[in-house]
């Protein structure tokens, strides 16, 4: 029991350290707040002619670009996990008497909390600045789903690091993979308007499923897409954590 308490305290300290690392990194702060906001502002402005007054372009991009932000959480996570500066400290933690898995679990949790807070701030700003509609009372479901997507994404980024054994490589691949998935999923412009072939292609991107589910919650008032979405993300996260357990090697931290 005493060991358990001590171990938990170790986790808390690790988590606090990781969280502070994220909070004090200007690059992480900017990519998680200013960058999505600018994208929404620019894309919303550019395409406002394609929408009317009832549903504005900001309503569309407010939701799709929050999903884009959630997708890019994977890069924040991989950055917080294996950045060169952190490798030595990770190594020391691995040799201390706490569980190995807590090194990456605390990174995932710290990233999740940090980016979800950023998303909350973004959402408030979006509502105040552009009057983005998140579904009124159903907004709770939208943000729960988005937060779970953040968790999934954080686990994905960390797993990718474990898989490729280097943060640089993982980030470079993630950068491309995320952008392709986002583009295909219609986050920057909707592929549904480009005909049947494009629409089918678009559904190959899992991002599209998430966006589709969110739009259904917001605009159709039907919650039947919420359960599959949430359970899918939770199962995905669990699988990724298992993947981390299998692919994480202490010696790669050197």
């Amino acid at each position: 029991m005493a060991q358990f308490v001590q171990s938990t305290r170790g986790f808390g300290m690790l988590w606090k350290r990781d969280f502070m690392n994220l909070l004090t990194s200007p690059v992480m702060l900017l990519t998680n707040t200013l960058f999505p906001l600018l994208l929404i502002l620019i894309l919303g402005y550019l395409t406002r002619g394609q929408y009317g007054d009832t549903v504005t372009s900001y309503d569309y991009y407010g939701i799709t670009l929050l999903v884009f932000h959630a997708l890019n959480v994977s890069m924040t996570a991989s950055n917080s996990f294996m950045e060169r500066k952190l490798r030595a400290s990770n190594m020391r933690v691995l040799y201390s008497p706490i569980r190995t898995s807590w090194v990456y679990l605390s990174k995932i949790l710290a990233t999740f909390v940090f980016t979800t807070l950023c998303m909350g701030m973004l959402a408030v700003l979006l509502v105040v600045l552009f009057g983005v509609y998140f579904g009124g009372k159903d907004a709770v479901y939208v943000f729960v789903a988005l937060a779970l997507f953040h968790l999934f994404s954080a686990a994905f980024g960390v797993w990718f690091c474990c898989l490729w054994k280097s943060e640089e490589l993982a980030n470079k691949i993630l950068n491309v993979v995320n952008n392709v998935l986002a583009l295909m999923g219609g986050l920057f412009f909707s592929w549904d308007s480009l005909g049947r072939t494009a629409e089918t292609l678009s559904y190959f991107s899992p991002v599209k499923w998430v966006v589709d589910g969110l739009f259904r919650i917001v605009y159709d008032g039907s919650l039947w897409s919420f359960i599959p979405l949430v359970s899918g993300l939770l199962i995905g996260t669990a699988l990724l954590l298992l993947g981390c357990k299998w692919t994480f090697r202490t010696e790669e931290m050197v």
């Binding site: 394609q50 309503d59 569309y60 909707s190 589709d212 739009f215 259904r216 605009y219 159709d220 039907s222």
Partner: peptide
């Protein structure tokens, strides 16, 4: 079709 298909531009 549902309103969401208008929002995601499946139909205009």
């Amino acid at each position: 079709p549902p309103v969401s298909s208008l929002v995601r531009q499946k139909y205009d």
